[in-house]
Structures are given as structure tokens and as C-alpha cells.
């Protein structure tokens, strides 16, 4: 299986790579920066979008890559932090400055039973690194699947029809307790069903 890990010039990309390698035995990941045109000429089975600086609109070739892999080819995509904000933005949900920016601390996350969270307690601790975010609103395409317990900011989402999911918190952080389980679930329900 060819997994593309698209790196938005981030400093947690290789933690994500290590987490996926640990959670999905035998997986091989190819890391490409979001400026690398080579990505558009290759075939991939899964796209994972890294966190990164700035806003979802400032992510190089990500829009083209997402269009090809997620929309044209209907293949699975997992976006983390900026990656999730991109998925939201692509489907019309705008990201703005949050009331409670947090960087490098744990937040209490509450999920609503989506398959991505199977086997994970309804509330669990995970690392947050973000100033930007958004709150639940009407969406034709997206379902919101987890929230920050106190602020209700969106912490996870999925697409209604495509195998596309996003996490605002950081599963790859040493402060997140169920990172491995989340990746396993993504592979079980979003990737394997393909």
C-alpha cells in the first residue's frame, strides 16, 4: 500500500509517520513537502495530511493533491490539525481565531461514537496545538464527530460519503493517550473498506 504523508513544512510530520508505522504493521509511507510537484504524477492509496503553520489556504499543492486523491479517486484521507482545517475549508467551513488557543497542553476531548473512536472512552485527553479552529455549524457534506469538552470547538470530523476524516488534536503527540487506537480505527473503517 502506497501512503502519501503530505508535509506542510511541519515539525510533527515524522511523529505522525512513526505513529502510523507502529499502528499499521507493514505500512510504507512516502513523505513529500506540499511544494513537491512529483506528488501529482504518482498513484497513492491513502493520503495523510500533516499539521503545519499558517492557514488551510496557504498549503502549497495540497488542494490539487486532495482533489486528485479524495475527490477524483475517492480514496481515504486523514487530515491532522491544519490537515483537518483544510478538509473543513475545502467543504465550506471557515476557520477562525479561537477563544482559547492552546499549544503544547492536553485538552479533554468528547466524541459522539463515530467508528473512528471505537474502543476509546467517550472523554479522553489529547494534545492541542492550535490558535485557529471552528465550532459546529450546518454542513451538507461534513459530520462533526468530536469536540473539546469545555469549549465545544470541533476536534474531529468526517465526510458524509467519502472516506475522509480529520482530527484537530494531535494523535502523534506524546501527550495523547489513544493515538495508536485512532490510527488503527482509521485503517480499519476508512481504509480497509475501500
Amino acid at each position: 500500500m502506497n501512503i502519501l504523508l503530505l508535509d506542510n513544512y511541519d515539525s510533527f510530520t515524522y511523529n505522525l509517520k512513526a505513529l502510523i508505522k507502529r499502528s499499521v504493521p507493514g505500512s510504507e509511507l512516502i513523505v513529500k513537502r506540499n511544494s513537491d510537484h512529483d506528488m501529482l504524477n504518482q498513484e497513492y492509496d491513502v493520503l495523510v495530511v500533516s499539521p503545519g503553520p499558517k492557514t488551510w489556504n496557504e498549503t502549497g499543492l495540497l488542494k490539487d493533491v486532495f482533489q486528485k486523491i479524495a475527490i477524483d479517486e475517492r480514496k481515504p484521507v486523514l487530515g491532522i490539525c491544519l490537515g483537518m482545517q483544510f478538509v473543513a475549508g475545502y467543504f465550506g467551513i471557515e476557520t477562525g481565531r479561537m477563544n482559547n488557543p492552546v499549544h503544547g497542553s492536553q485538552a479533554m476531548i468528547r466524541h459522539n461514537g463515530d467508528l473512528l473512536f471505537e474502543g476509546i472512552p467517550e472523554k479522553f485527553s489529547a494534545a492541542r496545538y492550535n490558535s485557529l479552529g471552528f465550532y459546529e455549524e450546518e454542513s451538507e457534506q461534513l459530520v462533526f464527530t468530536a469536540f473539546e469538552d469545555d469549549s465545544n470547538a470541533v476536534m474531529a470530523l468526517r465526510h458524509k460519503h467519502l472516506p475522509v476524516a480529520g482530527l484537530q488534536f494531535h494523535p502523534e503527540s506524546f501527550m495523547t493517550v489513544h493515538g495508536e487506537k485512532l490510527i488503527k480505527n482509521f485503517w480499519r473503517y476508512y481504509v480497509k473498506d475501500q
Binding site: 515539525s11 510533527f12 510530520t13 515524522y14 511523529n15 509517520k17 512513526a18 492552546v102 499549544h103 503544547g104 497542553s105 494534545a127 496545538y129 494531535h170 502523534e172 503527540s173 506524546f174 501527550m175
Partner: peptide, 16 residues
């Protein structure tokens, strides 16, 4: 603690 956590994740990344 948040600053240290952030740098720990960053160093983990670079070592990974």
C-alpha cells in the same frame, strides 16, 4: 510545561 512539551514533540519528530 507547555513549552517543554512542545519541544519534546519537536525533538521526537527530528529523531524519528
Amino acid at each position: 510545561l507547555a513549552e517543554l512539551s512542545m519541544i519534546v514533540d519537536l525533538l521526537r519528530n527530528d529523531m524519528n
